[in-house]
Amino acid sequence: MNESMHIVCPQCDAINRIPSVRLSEAPNCGKCHQPLFDGHPVALTGSNFQQHVNHNDIPLLIDFWAPWCGPCKMMAPQFTQAATQLEPNVRLAKVNTEAEQMLGAQFGIRSIPTLILFHHGREVARQSGAMGMADIVRWALSHS
């Protein structure tokens, strides 16, 4: 089965069509030629949020955080480590709720950090509170 998947580039936000069997072969973006998976969460803003949520065929795990939040700072390196474990099967992203207050309000973020897992544009699962890398990976895989 050589099904194609749409993957949004973390650098230029272009939508790429990749055969699913090639996901693990470190594919590059057809537009900017940068790696589609680099083991780092993508920074999402009001301008690129919908592109990533609606046009990635793999689950998208978003960390809603703020720079003044102690638990968010503690979880940040754990979340980055989880990206190296979950890619290319799950894309990880971050939304700074201080800078992107409209996104925080749109999704009813009441406490941070909050993780929301999206798949095909829909919220699939939500978890509030800081977690370690292994718990993030386990939680994401159990809901994707």
Rank of each mutant, 00 (worst) to 15 (best):
V53R: 09
L141V: 07
H33K: 14
R138G: 06
P27D: 01
I18V: 15
N89C: 08
T97G: 03
V90R: 05
K31L: 09
I7Q: 03
S144A: 06
I15C: 10
C72R: 02
G30N: 07
D135F: 02
G46P: 13
A99Y: 11
A93G: 10
C29R: 14
V8W: 14
M131E: 02
I136N: 07
R17I: 01
M102G: 03
M75D: 02
P59I: 02
L92R: 12
G104V: 07
M131F: 01
E3Q: 15
A82Y: 13
M5W: 15
A125F: 04
N48P: 06
G39H: 11
L60T: 04
S142I: 06
Q50S: 14
Q81V: 02
S111L: 08
Q78S: 14
L103K: 13
G46M: 09
A26Q: 15
V95Q: 06
T97F: 00
I62C: 08
I112D: 07
G132H: 05
A93R: 13
N2I: 09
V21D: 13
K94T: 06
P35D: 13
V95P: 09
A134E: 15
Q85R: 09
A83P: 10
N48D: 09
K73H: 03
N48F: 00
V42D: 03
K73T: 04
F79P: 10
I116M: 12
V95M: 09
Q34G: 00
Q106T: 08
A14R: 10
G121H: 05
A82K: 06
Q50A: 14
H40R: 13
V42Q: 06
P77C: 03
